[in-house]
Design a protein around this nucleic acid. Structure first.
Lengths: 254, 254
DNA sequence: GAATGGCGTTCGACAATATCGAACAAAATG
DNA sequence: CATTTTGTTCGATATTGTCGAACGCCATTC
């Protein structure tokens, strides 16, 4: 991909990306500071985005927020996501039998994107949101993908990823991570043992497409103390079986 | 809103809008024909959108489809939509008692956008999709909104809407529609009697915000013959009550 | 296996157009 | 009522987006 990118388009995307679950409304000034452009430049871009429904202005405080057109397009993407439709019933089933929160993520470059879930019972729920992104090297879902990627791709991703320690248990040394991934590959499933949040454990298994490439993974996440119970021994096998079933329906053959 | 819009940004949005539920993959050629621009211009825009994850290229056939970044932003919009969170449980409840498909739409200009639903039981389901848009003047949900809008706004919308007859029962004469809306206002709920699809009937009620402005509506849609049963007499009242409850939780006071 | 056609992609030159600062308007603040 | 802050408009400028032409790749055809 060459580098002759359209400046104003890239800038308009920068503007959209200023918004998030926590930053839902922004003023022109805040946006212009965020993207480091003059107010007038930003204003022109914002005006274009608003007129087309990609941004909306709150008439009470003049601030802007993301518009409904994005909701619309986002749902087109969701609707076209074959794997999501295929996986949904299997994930629901798995969540039911395990009585835990189950996630489906797909790989996008060196990140994992959450595309489907099934919340577990009880008041303690994991924070998770459709479309959320997470690093590959320190999450169960991510490791399940990394471990089965071609070695060169895996190494490239580890080089590109910035290693941030979320908890004392997060692995940040690429060599240690590679060891862990090797174990994961042999075992057939990945374990996240409080690497992203203390008290949180998860088991994840890879999903393959018809070309036998890892493209996604599912995980079963829960509080650590529950995983120590003997009745949970079969859990990894159940996650693996569910992942295999999704792979199969995607055209994968053993 | 003045008209000094940024051409290249508007064009990039034109490109995104070429895609839909039915048109999920497009080639550069198809896009350039769709937006009536040279291949090279389109290519530059596409390249920018792809590099940022708003489009993705299928490596097998070179075609492009909408990217995950839109899924992400679309979910931010969904997450920020207060009314959606508030209405969801009420809609689920209503669907349960009525045993029919229930929809929540919000007004966006002169269109209705479907933002939440609860599918009815049975194999016969209405085609409906999150983010889908529909005209206001010939749908139950739309008429429930139009009828309670300030007269001038309503008239403006009728002027701007192109009147397409979806079925022989669709009203296309603005005067007839105004009469119908007047009846709707007095009755407190709207009826769509096969105006958008033959065999399909629906009952819809308006939702108001804290400023007593109509901003949305809910509907209960089902096959016509079922609505003739006597047991269904209470249905309109139940839809109205649910809509009122949503309005109340949005800060509306009678 | 050379020739053809179709399509995605790159390149260079030109002029259209996006950009910025400054000025204006309109609220919010004291 | 003065002052500050912030959204919006305008005009001059050169940056940057645009197009046509050409390239290269793949598949199909003869």
């Amino acid at each position: 991909m060459s580098d002759r990118l359209i400046q104003s388009v890239a800038r308009s995307l920068d503007i959209l990306e200023q918004f998030s679950f926590t930053q839902t409304e922004l003023s022109v000034k805040e946006i212009s500071e965020g993207v480091k452009l003059s107010k007038s430049t930003v204003h022109g871009l914002i005006k274009t985005l608003s007129q087309r429904g990609y941004l909306e202005q709150n008439q009470e405080n003049q601030k802007y927020k993301l518009g409904l057109r994005l909701f619309e397009l986002g749902n087109v993407v969701a609707g076209n996501m074959e794997i999501r439709q295929i996986a949904a019933p299997i994930i629901a089933q798995l969540g039911e039998t395990l009585q835990e929160t189950v996630h489906l993520v797909i790989r996008d470059g060196n990140q994992a994107v959450y595309v489907e879930k099934r919340d577990g019972p009880g008041s303690i729920r994991m924070y998770s949101q459709y479309g959320k992104r997470a690093p590959l090297h320190c999450t169960g879902v991510g490791k399940a993908i990394l471990a089965f990627l071609p070695e060169k791709v895996m190494e490239q991703i580890l080089i590109e990823s910035e290693m941030v320690a979320f908890t004392p248990k997060t692995l940040t040394d690429p060599e240690k991570i590679k060891e862990e991934l090797s174990i994961t590959r042999d075992r057939g499933y990945a374990i996240d043992d409080e690497e992203i949040e203390l008290g949180l454990t998860c088991i994840a298994a890879p999903i393959f497409n018809h070309k036998k490439e890892v493209i996604a993974s599912i995980s079963c996440a829960g509080l650590k103390f529950r995983y120590l119970e003997e009745s949970q021994e079969m859990r990894p096998q159940q996650v693996i079986q569910a992942a295999k079933e999704i792979s199969r329906r995607l055209g994968w053959k053993e």
